[in-house]
Design a protein around this nucleic acid. Sequence first.
DNA 1: GTCATCATGTAAGCCGTTACATGATTGC
DNA 2: GCAATCATGTAACGGCTTACATGATGAC
Lengths: 200, 200
Amino acid sequence: MLGLLNEQPLHGYELKKRLSETLGPLWGISFGSLYPALRRLERSGAITETVSEGDDGPAAPIVPTGSVKGDLAAALRRRPRSTRRTRKAYRLTDAGRELFIELLTAPETDDERSFALRLSFCRHLTGPERLSFLERRRTQLTQRLAPVRRTAPSRTVDRYTRSLLEHRAQTTQHDLEWIDELIAEERELVERTEEGAASA
Amino acid sequence: MLGLLNEQPLHGYELKKRLSETLGPLWGISFGSLYPALRRLERSGAITETVSEGDDGPAAPIVPTGSVKGDLAAALRRRPRSTRRTRKAYRLTDAGRELFIELLTAPETDDERSFALRLSFCRHLTGPERLSFLERRRTQLTQRLAPVRRTAPSRTVDRYTRSLLEHRAQTTQHDLEWIDELIAEERELVERTEEGAASA
DNA sequence: GTCATCATGTAAGCCGTTACATGATTGC
DNA sequence: GCAATCATGTAACGGCTTACATGATGAC
C-alpha cells in the first residue's frame, strides 16, 4: 500500500484493484483487511486523507452487453463526472515515505512472498540500496542451500519427500542464478551512473 | 501432526522436533500453536491420549563438553530410564485417520506450502489417490501459466517486477516438468501393481 | 426501477505468534 | 546445587478472512 501511494494518491478500492492485478495471486488482500490497515496507517501518521482534485479516477469500463450498437452508444455517451464525494484518497506523508523505505530494506524474513513484494517495489530505492538488498537475498539463498549439501544421503525420508527436497534445492539454485543476473545488471547500472557523475 | 501420528504415537515435544527437522523451514510451528492444536484434535476425537508403554523415547543426545574422556564416560553411563510420567503421547483414532486422508486429498488451495506438506505425506495414499492428487496439482500449475501468456507485453510494470514475473513463470514451468516426472513414475508403479494383481 | 459496479466500512471468528510460567530429568 | 534440555501449557496480541451492512453512481 505504501508503495503504491508513493507514486500517487489513491483510494482504498483502487488500491486493492491495483494490488490484485499487478501482484496477482502473489499478494492477495481483502477489504476487511485493507480498510482497517488504512486507518492504522493514518493514525500512525504515515498517510493522510487528501482531496482527489482533478483526478476523476480511471474511466469506468464498458461492460459488453452483447449488443454492438448499444455498446457503441454507451461509449459515445461517456463523459467525465463532476464530483465523487464518497471516495477517500490518501497520500503518503514524509514519515510514510520513510517508513516505506525502512520496510523495503528491513532485515528480511527468509520468505518468498516478502522478497517478491519488496522486489516489485525496489525501484523506489537508490542503486546502492537496491544492490545491498539483492545481495542480502543472495546470502539467504546460499545459506538455505548449505544444509542440503551437508546432510548425508538420508534414507529416513520416503521417495516423495526426497524428491521434494531435491526439487526445492534445484529451485533455490535457479533462484540464485537469477539473483546473480539481477546483481550483475544492477552493478552495471551503478557503475554507469558513477561514470556519468565523474565526467560531469 | 496427523501424518506423523499416523505412523506412531508421539508426544507434543517430539512431534515438533520431527516437524522441524524433516519439513525444516518449510513448515514451522510453535509450541503455543502446537499444544492448543493437540487439545482441539483430542476434543474433536481425531486423537486420543495413550500410555507410551515400552517406548522410552529417543536416546538423549550427548552434548559434547570438549572433554573427550568426559563424553565417553557419559556415553557409558547412559541406560534406559524407567518412567517418564510427564509426557503425554497421542495416537490417531479411526476418525483421525479418516480426517487425515480427507485433508490430504481435499480440494487444494493453490499454495506452495500446502502442496509441499501434502506431498511429503502422500505415501499414506493409495496409488490412484496419489495420481489424482498429482494431476490436480498439474492442472493448477497449467492454469497459473495461462494468464502469463495471454498478457500483452505490458510496459506498465518496471523492469524488476517484469523480471520477477518472468522468473516466476520459469519456475512454474520447472515445477510442471517435475510434476510430470512424478506422474510418470507414479503411472509406472500403478501399472506394475495392476499387472501383479492380474497375474496373481 | 433495477441491476451492476464502485466504494467504505464493521463484527465475529480463527489461528498463529511471542512471551511467560512451570516443573521433571540428567550431567557435572 | 546448577545449568541444560525435555516437556507442557496459558495469556495477550495481532492480523487476516468471511460475512454482513450501507450507500452512491451509471446503464438501460
